[in-house]
Nucleic acid binder design. Structure first.
Ligand code: ZN
Ligand code: ZN
Ligand code: ZN
Ligand code: ZN
Lengths: 144, 144
DNA sequence: AGGCGACTGTTATATAATAACATAATGACT
DNA sequence: AGTCATTATGTTATTATATAACAGTCGCCT
């Protein structure tokens, strides 16, 4: 999926959810899309400043939080970063693999697995919030 | 397991692994043990300062990193915190459930799951580093 | 027009983590 | 014991990450 159609789909996705992908939010989503893999908030901030002049952290964080909330991005806690979700339309349960060396991200479907996981947690009365699990490690390429 | 026997076991554990639980590291482990659930580095720092006078961040971070490396603590990325591992001696694959509301932590064994998980990731050539998985959500008590 | 709710701008600050270098303690070897 | 390498700790400064708080703007409804 190229960037233009991704952005169009993202816009539809937000509308369906009753909220708006504003110019700013869309801009920031574009900036994230420019990168491969994990992107950091302050990197996005720098990009934004380069393109638009002055900008402050809250501007970026608010937009990123919005995008995460809408499922367009996933937050990568282990790296203080964000990654694009490439299949936000299906109600997926993804397993996100982040390479510690190159920063590349691979999101694989693990619905069956995470369903089973949910059973385990529910057995102890725990209601899990996230539907996307994240693992850090070393990818195929870097692992050689 | 009470604190004294935990600390003794921790000391043995380190020796077996060919490194030392020094006075400082032990002290910081004790400070973590004082709390329930997730503890933050700067909280430990404050505790240390209260007990010992002056102390700086690197002192705490180095000790915490050591303890994580030895498997005595787990790092909770999602909350920038640390939790005690209560069964570091068995070669466990734990699933750590962190309550977003109260901060309490429950570590349940999920070896069979994580074994299956490993198979999935290996299928795409990814070598996962962590053996302990973390989920955030809402615990039984807070969930009512 | 007026008021409301959302989004955004702006300034300041809080929180988390590390770099870089200095000093001290430990242990191996002669 | 004395030398030397290694590890651990102290110290200062800085970088990185994230949020609070308030002010202004804009579209929309009445
Ligand atoms: Zn996804
Ligand atoms: Zn890689
Ligand atoms: Zn554990
Ligand atoms: Zn709770």
């Amino acid at each position: 999926m190229n960037k233009q159609s991704y952005l169009a789909a993202a816009e539809r996705h937000c509308l369906l959810r009753g909220c708006k992908l504003t110019t700013l939010r869309r801009h920031i989503l574009e900036l994230v899309l420019e990168h491969d893999g994990v992107v950091k908030a302050y990197q996005v901030l720098a990009d934004l400043q380069r393109e638009r002049g002055v900008a402050a952290p809250p501007t970026v964080y608010r937009a990123l939080d919005f995008l995460v909330e809408q499922g367009l991005l996933h937050k990568v806690d282990a790296l203080n970063g964000f990654v694009v979700c490439s299949h936000f339309e299906c109600n997926h349960h993804g397993l996100i693999l982040v390479c510690e060396m190159c920063g590349r991200v691979e999101e694989i479907d693990a619905s069956h697995f995470l369903g089973a996981l949910q059973e385990v947690t529910e057995a102890v009365g725990f209601e899990s919030r996230e539907q996307n699990l994240l693992l850090t490690g070393v990818c195929k390429a870097c692992h050689a």
